[in-house]
């Protein structure tokens, strides 16, 4: 899956269609599972679709390909999103998605690297993915590999102190092969991030920590693709893409609703949601 900058318009049309299907798969698997994280999977769906279907070099038939770009889902609760893109790009059969959260399934409630090829490292406990990404990025540089590392964090997640320890480390070691993405959907379990514990000003925080900061609308395809391209050209420091998103994006009655952080759609909600995606897609 390579970057096709020359035909961006066609690329975006393709990505839009894929993102819609990704959302459909997310909703379907969550409805079957009866539990899981809907809001944060939908908010980051466009970004992760752009990575797996366009930006990243990876080989679904060879998940441990040495020269692949790495994706670390630090916000591990968005597992349904990761599973959807992995299945749709061919890491495993799409029918496996209906086993999400079931006994014996490789699709654990939060990603488990030992259970599912394509998952780089087990996540779910927040705040840890960026440190791991740093380690991978350092290792890639030592081996003179040009692979890049993408790490997706939640906005509530950056309340974890370890994120800022890792932010310092990445800047100190000049990890320009690393690109963090913060999914700024504005909501966490207990309510708006600004009410639970304010994280703003986010951009100046990362900037102060020595990062190249790229602010985008996380649902604008042009901006998403440009951000990843820009990050790749910045040398000597890591880049962070601060993506303003809408929690539950794509399904009107989930959008901006804190209640759908950790709740799966009912069968009735699923049917309504699928209809909506069909109409709006």
């Amino acid at each position: 899956m390579k970057d096709s900058r020359g035909c961006r318009e066609r690329d975006i049309t393709f990505l839009k269609a894929q993102a819609k299907l990704v959302r459909v798969e997310i909703l379907k698997m969550l409805a079957v599972a009866g539990s899981g994280h809907t809001g944060g999977s939908l908010s980051a769906a466009d970004i992760v679709t752009a990575l797996y279907f366009s930006k990243m070099r990876h080989r679904p038939d060879n998940p441990s390909w040495r020269e692949r770009d790495r994706f670390i889902l630090s916000k591990g609760h968005a597992a349904p999103l990761l599973y959807a893109v992995l299945a749709m790009t061919g890491y495993f059969d799409i029918s496996m998605l209906k086993t999400l959260r079931k006994l014996g399934s490789p699709l654990q409630g939060h990603p488990c690297s030992r259970a599912l090829p394509g998952v780089e490292i087990s996540t779910g406990s927040l705040g840890q993915g960026l440190s791991v990404s740093n380690g991978i990025a350092i290792g890639l540089k030592m081996d003179n590999l040009s692979s890049r590392v993408y790490c997706l964090l939640g906005d509530g997640e950056i309340q974890e102190g370890q994120v800022w320890e890792a932010a310092m480390t990445a800047a100190h070691y000049r990890l320009d092969n690393l690109c963090a993405i913060v999914d700024l959907n504005g909501l966490q379990i207990d309510g708006p991030v600004s009410k639970v514990k304010a994280i703003e000003p986010v951009a100046s925080k990362w900037s102060a920590f020595g990062w190249n900061v790229i602010e985008i609308d996380g649902h604008n395809w042009e901006e998403i693709l440009n951000a990843f391209d820009e990050a790749e050209t910045v040398k000597g420091k890591p880049s962070v893409v601060l993506a303003r998103t809408i929690k539950g994006k794509g399904v009107s009655f989930f959008e901006g609703k804190v209640e759908y952080h950790g709740v799966a759609p009912t069968q009735e909600e699923l049917e309504r949601a699928l209809k909506e995606l069909e109409v709006n897609g």
Binding site: E120, I121, S131, V132, N134, G135, A166, T169
Partner: peptide
């Protein structure tokens, strides 16, 4: 965490 990442890099 960084050590874990380095292990992932072989």
């Amino acid at each position: 965490g960084t050590a874990a990442g380095l292990a992932l890099s072989g």
